[in-house]
């Protein structure tokens, strides 16, 4: 479903060129649960943004469901982000002046969906994420866990195929962090592909497939769960 080959991305910082991604090859199938780990600056967020079409590679090809993403223009990419991809951020990125319900409604507003359908879906999502009595509250009146649940509701309201989470628990305490991970994993069980960037090794180990990045390259790509116990190395190509 996701197929990256020889993806390169170079940033220019001052006079220096920083290779964020060096010839990355990666294939991810529908319904996978992937964690991307690595030290900061290893290119894991860049990889996530690349998959989420927020960034374009300098070279290489990216096929999403068989379609070449590098050939699409900005508005075609925006349409794909709207319908196929959901983002979850460390800092939630809720619009501060809007209520929880309005934040959840935002992607449907951009898609030009009918108001009645929007209201219905928001209602369902608010209930599903346990935010019924918080729907009218603005983000600054919500706890961190509640904010992230609003953000997940927003990311999934368009029923995307892929969920991209960048340090989703990085700004949460342990309890609400676990809560958020439980929600994400249950979404994954409903066949949504979940790709999560984290530098919490404990969190990373929960994923069925674990990718380690160092210096813009994929250093290891393992599926320890295939053989239930023990961290037997299963290098994938």
């Amino acid at each position: 479903m996701i197929s990256l080959s020889r993806i390169k991305r170079v940033f220019t910082v001052g006079d220096e060129e920083v290779n964020a991604l060096r010839d990355v090859d990666l294939d991810i199938d529908t319904g996978e649960y992937v964690s991307i780990m690595g030290p900061s600056g290893s290119g894991k967020s860049t990889l996530l943004n690349m998959i989420g079409l927020l960034d374009r590679p300098d070279s290489g090809t990216y096929l999403l469901e068989g379609e070449d993403m590098t050939r699409l223009d900005d508005s075609q990419q925006a349409a794909l982000r709207r319908h196929k991809i959901g983002f979850i951020f460390q800092f939630f990125h809720l619009v501060p002046r809007m209520s929880a319900a309005e934040n959840i409604e935002l992607p449907m507003m951009l898609a030009g969906m009918a108001v009645a359908e929007r209201k219905k879906r928001v209602e369902e999502a608010v209930e599903a994420f346990g935010l019924t009595d918080r729907a009218r509250h603005r983000p600054d009146q919500l706890s961190g866990g509640q904010r992230q649940r609003v953000a997940i509701a927003r990311a999934t309201i368009m029923q995307p195929h892929i969920l991209l989470a960048d340090e989703p628990t990085g700004n949460l305490d342990r309890v609400s962090g676990n809560e958020v991970i439980d929600i994400l994993e249950s979404l994954n069980r409903q066949q949504i592909t979940l790709i999560m960037v984290t530098h919490d090794p404990e969190l990373g180990r929960r994923a069925r497939r674990q990718i380690h990045m160092v210096d813009g390259r994929i250093e290891s790509d393992r599926c320890p769960s295939i053989n239930e116990k023990g961290p037997a190395e299963q290098p994938r190509e």
């Binding site: 900005d74 508005s75 925006a78 794909l80 800092f91 990125h93 992607p107 951009l110 927003r154």
Partner: peptide
């Protein structure tokens, strides 16, 4: 800025 970035991430076109 963050709001604009978010709008883009959830699929707003530049024209929007």
């Amino acid at each position: 800025r963050a709001e604009v970035g978010l709008l883009k991430a959830i699929g707003a076109r530049n024209g929007q």
